[in-house]
Amino acid sequence: MKLEARSLVKRYGSHVALDGASFSTGPDDARVIALLGPSGGGKSTLLRVLGCLLVPDEGHVCVDGRDLPHDEVGAQAERRGNGFVFQGYNLFPHLTTLQNITLPLQEVHGMSALQAEQRAIEWLHRLGLEGHEHKRPSQLSGGQQQRAAIARALAPRPRLLLLDEPTSALDPVMTGEVLDVIRELAEEGQSIVLATHEISFARKVADQVVFLAAGKALECSPVSRFFQQPESNLARQYLEGLSRYR
């Protein structure tokens, strides 16, 4: 996939979360794009704009040569082709794990109840959640909830999977479980945009890195170049700070 952003601006009230961010991945196709940068730098906001969950106040995004729509109807259609995974899992607490996956398949993607259930069970088993189909999210561990959330995002076969710090709320063991899943998906060729602080994971799995700070994309480069010779001082400091204890 190729991503191109031109002077993206997104404000929350008077706070500017994206402040004219521009970057372009390429020239080669990237499977996995990692959004790195300090907290508050705008990673989550950019991820939402890329996935059409948010419409920018100014600027354009181009995914594989297509301009993303700015109207709600177009944005919704685009969104339905994407899968999202959030830091806090955000499963629907009143539904079982299985229903969390089947409901969007039936109501949004027009699958029959039977098809939806088959598809959901397939994914739950793949992500190691057999036996948990009929539990509520509150009865699952954090790692299990996040894997269920990944199953929900993937079941409709999204073009693009967008993950916003999917392991930040998890302990190291559960983080490992979830990262294994993401890595496997990447190896199978799923297009992924991942905001994360797990830099050693990003280094192994990502093809491209976009480095964001204070709402600007300071760098956009292939993963090996970013980690070996970051161009900006901020990126260098960020990497040093994160690798000090790992």
Binding site: F86, N90, F92, P93, L103, E107, P156
Partner: peptide
């Protein structure tokens, strides 16, 4: 975050009320 999750799975406004907001 629940409202965002509803949008993220592709629900429109009506579906969000019906499947996410009202039951909870």
């Amino acid at each position: 975050s629940q409202l965002e999750a509803a949008r993220a799975v592709g629900f429109d406004r009506m579906q969000t009320y019906r499947f996410v907001i009202v039951p909870q």
